[in-house]
Design a protein around this nucleic acid. Structure first.
Length: 284
DNA sequence: CATTTATCCTGTAAGC
DNA sequence: TGCTTACAGGATAAAT
């Protein structure tokens, strides 16, 4: 599932593949991909035609292409990969792809394709506000790789809430980029019970969790960046390039690498939570 | 306001 | 073998 390291890998691939490219035309191949777009597919395709890609940006799991000229001057094409979204650049003229949701024809003959099996991903044209991020991304907190990310401020906010620490990590509003996999990994590294309320955890322990989240995502990014093909700017949700490095996620029943106790899996808000029952025991 | 829950979707895999 | 069911989960609208 694409979390920050995977999305950053895609961002780098897009930057090397389509920076300064001109968009000749846009095609929506599945309506659902533009479900958040005011004006729908019609506005989307009309506005994109004639635009130029001037930069490729990211915050948390959100990606965007800054645009100039055309009907999108000063706006951005915001993309969220959801569970299974991929970008791909192809030289092919005819697209035979059941999962292709949108296609941008580039002036040099190539096509930038947005593919998405489970259709949780989306594309949206959004104006870039005074903060420098698209309006559609304004509610998302800075991620740990952001130069203006403030560890003390974020940990203070986490520690001021009664909500459980994992829930807060996944919310994307205080800090962004962390999904279910890296949340479990960070909490294991910090030896924290996932449902510990922020207020009970305290600012120092919250900071430790955030530091570990940053560390594990940096390691994953380093691993993901090594096998990179600029013409196949892809995220495979099931791909396991970092899987062998995971300490708890998907390791139910296997021994904890710190203490040997069998890793347990629990239901958590319609998904799974993995933890060591000894290293990450509930408080009290 | 803060916080929690239901919902969207489809390919894969396990169970009967 | 073939059908049914559970599961994976990010973000957000709706509910509490």
């Amino acid at each position: 599932m694409p979390e920050l390291p995977e999305v950053e890998t895609v961002r780098r691939g897009l930057a090397s593949a389509v920076l300064a490219a001109d968009i000749v035309s846009a095609q929506v191949r599945h309506r659902r991909v533009v479900r958040r777009q005011p004006g729908g597919a019609r506005h989307f395709t009309i506005a994109l035609a004639g635009s130029r890609i001037t930069s490729v940006q990211r915050r948390g799991k959100y990606l965007w292409l800054e645009l100039a000229d055309g009907g999108c001057d000063g706006a951005a094409l915001v993309a969220h990969l959801g569970m299974s979204g991929q970008f791909r650049v192809t030289e092919k003229q005819r697209i035979h792809d059941n999962h292709a949701r949108a296609a941008l024809r580039l002036a040099d003959g190539r096509t930038l394709l947005f593919r998405d099996q489970r259709t949780f991903g989306w594309l949206l044209l959004s104006d870039i506000g005074a903060t420098g991020v698209p309006e559609a991304v304004a509610h998302i907190g800075r991620d740990p790789f952001d130069p203006e990310y403030d560890l003390a401020a974020v940990s203070a906010r986490l520690a001021s809430s009664n909500s459980g620490i994992k829930r807060q990590l996944l919310s994307q509003t205080v800090v962004s980029g962390v999904g279910n996999i890296y949340a479990d990994e960070a909490l294991w590294r910090a030896e924290v019970f996932p449902e510990t309320p922020g207020v009970l955890l305290g600012q120092q322990r919250c900071a430790e969790v955030l530091t570990q989240a940053h560390a594990v995502m940096a390691a994953a990014l380093a691993a993901g960046g090594t096998s990179f093909d600029p013409l196949y700017v892809a995220v495979n949700g099931e791909s396991g390039w970092f899987e062998r490095s995971l300490d708890v996620y998907g390791r139910e029943g296997e021994p904890c690498r710190r203490c040997g106790a069998p890793i347990m899996r629990e239901r958590f808000t319609n998904r799974s939570s993995h933890r060591c029952p000894k290293c990450q025991a509930p408080p009290h």
